[in-house]
Design a protein around this nucleic acid. Structure first.
Lengths: 212, 212
DNA sequence: CTTCTAACATACAGTCTGTATGGAACAGGA
DNA sequence: TCCTGTTCCATACAGACTGTATGTTAGAAG
């Protein structure tokens, strides 16, 4: 329903064109949702930017919210890929104990969240448009798993003291999200980044097992 | 514009009736916004619940978002009053050092946030409906000031190590907000409350000056 | 070549918001 | 008391927007 991709395997020209239309819709919607918000963006605006008609939109997506879900899924997936990429790069380049590695991971997580599309679409509009259940399902699928498994590993290795993973994951994600929004809207991004990083650093030390 | 209250001081019957109309609108809107959300609630539904017509609504408020602003302001104010009340009660009943007092304050802050109206209207719908600037202005006015001054006091007393107040306030508020939402949507509120409280406790220890 | 269906385009109906208009009640001054 | 102006609200209307129903075309299958 959401992805009526052509059933046939070979890349026929027809199927390719269909996928193009869908991608154009998602791309246009993403841009407009990010800069004007969900309700302020009409379906007419979207199809105009994508150079199709409303018929195409409602052929590919159940309704406007369904299109938004696709857009937000794309944003979340890109963010997840970026995080995995950074993670692997840091794991092989950087050296140090698991605890400092984890802290540096959070800092680069904070930097990765500094993306207008992601902030507006996933963090601000998402919960209100999709409702909490659908929003959480998407984030669970893409983002939380990475954070949760990293925290679990750190806990198994003894870097951080044992704690319930569920609330810990959510609360840390919310912490970093808010920090990124704070940095984004500050007049002086430089000092805001430094200050937020400092606060994050301090809060994270509470998780460390060294003082347990 | 937002509050065209009657200029005359005595409680004339006319002015009282006008204020009644306004209150009825805010109350009805608050209930409906909290249970159905902003966009899913039509102005027709609101005025029907308030037993007036749409004319009254658009006489008292600039538009639908302005009514929402009034509703959210009420929610935020009630929350602030509740917090001040709890704070003073704890300050005179409880005894202990400033650090434990502050930690207990955060825990009761977390409990106070466990309110459906507040969560849905202020935390979920607010940012998307009003946009960040207007939302932040309201929260700044009602909620942040309390938290910020408490943190400043704790820092002056040396309970917590010196840190930039701005990001610290926002990030702690986001932390508690997310924790309250996590508790609210959990199937087992009891254990969720305990777990979230535990995580919050751990994170807060990072702020303490004892390990600095 | 026929047929069938996916992939659109177009037209339409319903709903919602905001505004413009009108009227009723009350206050205040002459 | 009468007149006037303003507040408060009801009603009617215009515009916009969403979703659906219907029509059309191009390609795939046989």
């Amino acid at each position: 329903m959401t992805a009526p991709r052509s059933r046939r395997s070979p890349g026929s020209r027809r199927a390719e064109h269909t996928a193009d239309t869908r991608r154009a819709l998602v791309r246009a919607a993403r841009t407009l949702f990010a800069e004007r918000g969900y309700t302020a963006t009409g379906t007419e605006d979207i199809v105009a930017a994508a150079q199709v008609t409303r018929g195409a939109l409602y052929h590919h997506f159940k309704d406007k919210a369904d299109l938004f879900r696709a857009v937000m899924g794309e944003c979340a997936q890109e963010m997840a890929e970026r995080l995995v990429e950074q993670e692997t790069a840091r794991a092989e380049s950087e050296t140090g104990d698991a605890w400092t590695l984890l802290r540096h991971g959070f800092q680069s997580f904070l930097d990765a969240c500094n993306d207008p599309d992601f902030q507006r679409i996933v963090l601000v509009e998402g919960p209100a448009v999709l409702g909490h259940s659908a929003w959480d399902a998407l984030v669970e699928q893409h983002g939380y798993v990475l954070l949760a498994e990293e925290l679990t590993r750190a806990m198994d290795e003894g870097s951080i003291s044992p704690m319930p993973i569920g609330p810990l994951t959510r609360m840390l994600a919310a912490l970093i999200s808010e920090a990124s929004l704070y940095i984004a809207r500050a007049v002086d991004h430089e000092t805001a980044r430094k200050e937020a990083g400092e606060v994050l650093e301090r809060l994270l030390t509470g998780l460390s097992r060294t003082d347990a």
